[in-house]
Design a protein around this nucleic acid. Structure first.
Lengths: 327, 327
DNA sequence: ATGAAAGCGCTAACAG
DNA sequence: CTGTTAGCGCTTTCAT
C-alpha cells in the first residue's frame, strides 16, 4: 500500500492534522514537532496525494491544452512555452491533440471538465463546440473566436499580411498569389488574407481544405503554376505551405527568388533552423503563450476577469532570402 | 456550485448509488429508473467528477510524459502518437518538458507521483534521477537506460549507424566524420557511434555538449571543416545536426552532395517535409510510441509485467539526395 | 500548539 | 432492482 498522511502521523506520534499543518506551513507548530514530522516524511518516503487534496480544495492546478496536433512547429513551440510558464506557476498541462476532428475535440473538452481542470487553452480549428459556450469554465482561445465571452490572444494578422505583401511588392513582384486555409473558419488568420486582398489589384487566393495534408497542398500549388504561370510572388499563410511552395518550385525548375518570391508565416525556431533562407512573418509565439497563460490565470483567480477580450501582439518581417534578390 | 451526483439523485428521486450504477452500467437497473436518471443528468448538465472517482478507485488514468522539449520534431511526433494511442485507451497525458535539467526532471517526477499518475514514459536525457529507481511506479523509457528494472523501447541504433556509414562508403566517401551528443549519457544512441567506429579505419567523432544549441552546433561543424578539410562525408546523429551541416556547408561554399555527403537521423515527418532532400535514417516513431504505451499499460495492469526489458524496432535508410550523386 | 470530527464527490459491499 | 453505510486521503473549522 501507498504510504499516506496517517502513516506519517503515526510514526511521528502526532495527529494527521499536525502533519497537514507541516505540509502546508499553516498555523503554529513547535520546532520539535515539525522536525519529528519531517523526519517521518523522509523515513517513509512520503508524497502527499494531490488527488485527495484537489477533491477537498476544488482546485486541481491542471489546465487543458487543446490544439490540432502537437506535431507542427508552431504548436509545439507554443506548447513548450505554455507548459513552461504553467510549470513556473505550479500548473500542470494535459495535452490534447484534436486532429481537427470536432468529435475528438468535444470529447477532450468533456474529459477536461470531468477532470476538474481549472481552465482550458484552446488553439483548435474546430467550430461549434457548444461545450465551450455553455460551460462556466475559464477558457482562453489562441487565434480563434469561440464565443463572445472567451478572450482571444493572437498576433496582428492584418499587419503580418500587410508586411508580407508589401515586401513582395517592394521586391518587384507583379503577380502575387495568396494561399490560405479554409475561409469558413472564423479565425483571425483570415485577416492575413484581408490584408493581401486590400493591397493587390486582382487578388487570387487558393484555399487549402486540409492544411495538414502535404500531398494535397503540393497539388494545389502545382495547380497555381499551371493556372497562373505569370505568378512571381506567393504569400503563404504558414511556413509549411511556403516550404511546400519551395519544393514544388524546385521540382518545376522555377528559381527562387529570381523567378518566384515566397513569403511564409509563423517564423518558428524549428523552421528558421531547418529552412534558414525562408523569408517569413514571425509571430511572437512566446509572448502569445505568456499572455494566454496569464490571462487564463486571471480568470481562474477572478481578477480582471472581464477585461481585455482580445490581445493582439506585434509581428515582424524576417528577410532571409526567398523573397530578396540581394541576400 | 457545481452540480454533483447527489443533485442528480435528488432530481431523479433515487439514491446516489442508483445514479452511480447508471453512470457505470453496473448491476441491474430498471429501464424506467435509468431513463429518469439519464433525464436528470441531461437536465442538470451533469459531468461526473473524475477526481473523486480517482480517489476512490486509486486509478487516475493519467500518465506522465517526460521529454527534453516538445519543440523538437522527433519528440513532438513521438508525443503526438503517444497521446493519440493513450487517448484511444482512455488515458490522459501530462506533458513535462525537462529542458535537459536534472532539477526540473526530478520535480516533474515528484509532481507526477503526487498526482497519482498510473505510469510514466520517460524520454529524457538526464541521468541519475533516483526517484525512478526507488518508486514502485510503472515506468518505461524510450531510448534510455534508467535502471535495470525499467524497460527500454528504442529502434535499432547500431543498424541505423551501420546503414548510414555503409551508404556513405558505398557512395564513395573516404573521410567520414561523425557528430554525436555527449558520450557520457548512457543512451542506446551511442550505438550509432559504435557502428560508425566499427566501420571506418580512423573514426573521428565530434561531440556536442548542448544538442539544442544551434549556434554551438554550427561552431563545432565549422571546426570540423577547418581541422579536417578533407572531410567528404558526415554522419550526424540527428536531422537537426545534419541540417546545420547543410547550412554551414552552404555558407562555406561546399557543395552537397558533390563535395560533401550528409546523412542525418530520425526521419521525422516535419523534417522530411521541410528538408525533403536530406538523406537520413528513419526511426519507426509510431511503432516506438505504440510499443511504449502498450508496454506501460501491461505493467500498469500487471500482465506480462516482467517480460521484454528491451524492445528494439527496425530502422530504414531514406535516400533523398544529400548523400547521393544521382538523385 | 495540537487534536477530533466532519466532509470534498464518488463507489462498492452489504442488505433488503 | 434499489438504498444505507462506510471510506478513498486529505484539509479545515472548532475545540482545548
Amino acid at each position: 500500500m501507498k504510504v499516506k498522511l496517517e502513516d506519517v502521523a503515526q510514526l511521528a506520534g502526532v495527529s494527521p492534522t499536525t502533519v497537514s499543518r507541516v505540509l502546508n506551513n499553516r498555523g503554529y507548530i513547535s520546532e520539535k514537532t515539525r522536525e519529528k514530522v519531517e523526519q517521518a516524511i523522509k523515513d517513509l518516503n512520503y508524497y502527499p496525494n494531490d488527488i485527495a487534496r484537489s477533491l477537498f480544495k476544488k482546485r486541481t492546478n491542471f489546465i487543458g491544452l487543446i490544439l490540432p496536433t502537437i506535431n507542427n512547429p508552431f504548436f509545439s513551440e507554443l506548447a513548450l512555452y505554455i507548459e513552461n510558464i504553467c510549470s513556473n506557476h505550479e500548473f500542470k498541462v494535459i495535452l490534447c491533440n484534436s486532429l481537427g476532428q470536432v468529435a475528438k475535440e468535444t470529447s477532450y473538452a468533456e474529459m477536461l471538465i470531468r477532470h476538474q481542470v481549472d481552465g482550458i487553452i484552446v488553439c483548435s480549428y474546430n467550430r461549434g463546440i457548444e461545450i465551450y459556450k455553455n460551460s462556466k469554465l475559464p477558457i482562453v482561445a489562441i487565434d480563434h473566436y469561440l464565443s463572445p465571452t472567451i478572450p482571444v490572444i493572437g498576433s496582428d494578422n492584418y499587419e503580418g499580411g500587410r508586411l508580407a505583401v508589401q515586401h513582395l511588392l517592394n521586391q518587384g513582384c507583379k503577380e502575387i498569389i495568396h494561399i490560405n486555409g479554409p475561409s469558413e473558419l472564423e479565425t483571425p488568420t483570415q485577416n492575413r488574407r484581408k490584408a493581401y486582398e486590400d493591397q493587390v489589384a486582382h487578388p487570387i487566393t487558393y484555399e487549402l481544405n486540409s492544411v495538414f495534408d502535404e500531398e494535397a497542398t503540393a497539388e494545389t500549388i502545382k495547380k497555381i503554376f499551371k493556372e497562373h504561370p505569370e505568378t512571381d510572388g506567393i504569400f503563404a499563410s504558414d511556413d509549411l505551405i511556403a516550404s511546400t511552395c519551395l519544393k514544388v518550385a524546385n521540382e518545376l525548375g522555377i528559381q527562387v527568388p529570381n523567378q518566384l518570391k515566397v513569403v511564409g508565416y509563423d517564423g518558428t525556431l524549428s523552421v528558421r533552423s531547418l529552412l534558414p533562407h525562408l523569408t517569413t512573418i514571425k509571430q511572437p509565439i512566446e509572448e502569445i503563450a505568456q499572455s494566454a497563460v496569464l490571462r487564463l490565470m486571471d480568470i481562474i483567480n477572478e481578477v480582471n476577469k472581464d477585461e481585455r477580450m482580445e490581445i493582439i501582439l506585434p509581428v515582424q518581417l524576417l528577410e532571409n532570402g526567398t523573397a530578396e534578390l540581394n541576400g
